[in-house]
Design a protein around this nucleic acid. Structure first.
Lengths: 261, 261
DNA sequence: GAAATAGTGTCTTTTAGACAGTATCGG
DNA sequence: CCGATACTGTCTAAAAGACACTATTTC
């Protein structure tokens, strides 16, 4: 085997490599994602708030097909130009409806399947969020396509699009679970709030009374809040106002409030 | 206005409806999902088990681009023909590697973004699973592309594809959290197991000792298990064997084992 | 001062932590 | 009988439940 044939051999191998063993860069240069069939990808959010003394979610009357005219969760397609992640998609869609960012936004789960959307095999990454209803004027004031609808009776409704009823149920389960071991419900309240308000949201979320004393003990132990110095008169003795300490994370307790039924 | 013109009017309106106000059926008939650009959709699983006295995850040497030769999670594209949901995709991909279904499989979260896969804007629904390593022969016996790799040191590795290191970290956080308030670790054990084995998995997952007495109290309180009647000799006094009671769900305790650091 | 709402004190209950004590086995 | 592993008893500790009590405000 002379030098010439060895070189030929090497370049022959190199040629093979180009055909059968592409480099990473070559592979990526020729890759075209649009050649492959792929599910319909959307993002939906379950936005909770307190509205008219009730725990509500924000629903939107669907302006377009499919399921035009039905009530659905605020959401839509990922915009690969605008959105860095599906979290951005969720925030963008919520901002369109409320004109502000929610105080809390966390991923719930991804729901998928061939039957959940009549357009075909689809997948939605669902988020759940909390906001103080009074901070988003757009929703509460306008005669709009988006409005707060009570959680109570939600499971019996027949005018909810896709599997959004199921997603709302799962979001409520998650919100209730978190309420048992954190003070998450504060994010349904305005920036300054009283302990009584916190107790009320907590009771509305859990749909049962909670011991005020237990709540106060947790409130103090969390070290998440500070007095504003102000107080409000809600009938009799004035109630102290509290706010979130800047930069404090949600505290998780190591045991649940009340044992589940 | 005679009968003739009224009819013309109606069919004129109907024509308008076809152009501007499609019915749901008409809309669906003309809908073509493939016209819209959409993210790359995959499913990945973090399969945990006990192997050689260590908590391990199943990693697969990537046979194809991108990131060929790197270690990644078992997973892949959704097959819209075969898979009813992404759960089926996860199970199918795990079965290919282990030839059995995991004892536990639960959705972790969905990770998305423009940068996590070099092919473009992508989204993966990640699951985490538990299995007894001894039940899946294919993995442990063969010189295969899939093998158990210890969790310890995983965060320092530089040979893990995509954001799979991050996904593994999140899965471990979730597994540890669940271990604090349930007996989930039993699903890393064979169908019949001793309390000492359960204690060992629990300690490996949490990376710290647990009070055997606390574990036994929970074991009994859960009512999830029954004695097999058999026992095994592991050196000295024989240890009783237990199995999951058929049809029993995972019990969640209302407080955590040990307070987090 | 009565009524109402806000907030505190304190005893009980539940369940984990700690660890000493007993049981069963092989040698 | 010794050592080792499996299992139990029981006291302590932490935090929630229950509820009576005090404080502040309006009328």
């Amino acid at each position: 085997m002379n030098h010439q044939s060895a070189t030929a051999n090497v370049s022959g191998r190199h040629f093979l490599q180009e055909r059968m063993m592409l480099s990473e860069q070559e592979y990526l240069a020729q890759y075209d994602a649009s050649r492959y069939a792929s599910p319909i990808v959307t993002v939906d959010s379950v936005l909770f708030s307190l509205w008219q003394e009730q725990l509500c979610v924000l629903l939107v009357k669907r302006a377009n097909h499919p399921q035009k005219g039905w009530w659905g969760l605020p959401g839509g397609f990922v915009d690969m130009q605008q959105d860095a992640t599906t979290r951005d998609t969720a925030l963008r869609k919520l901002r369109e409806k409320t004109s502000v960012d929610p105080a809390w936004l966390e991923q719930l789960a991804t729901f998928s399947g061939a039957d959940r959307d009549p357009r075909g095999w689809s997948l939605t990454t669902a988020w759940y969020a909390l906001i103080a209803a009074e901070t988003c004027k757009a929703v509460s004031d306008d005669v709009s396509d988006a409005c707060w609808q009570p959680i109570e009776g939600m499971a019996q409704r027949t005018d909810i699009a896709f599997d959004h009823q199921h997603i709302i149920t799962e979001a409520l389960i998650r919100l209730r679970q978190k309420t048992l071991y954190s003070l998450l419900p504060v994010h349904c309240l305005p920036a300054e709030f009283t302990l009584t308000q916190l107790q009320q949201v907590t009771e509305l979320i859990l749909a049962r009374p909670v011991q005020r004393k237990s709540l106060i003990r947790r409130f103090e132990a969390s070290a998440m809040f500070e007095e504003t110095g102000e107080s409000v008169a809600t009938g009799a003795r004035r109630a102290k106002l509290y706010r979130l300490k800047p930069g404090s994370d949600m505290h998780n307790f190591s045991r649940n409030l009340m044992v589940e039924d």
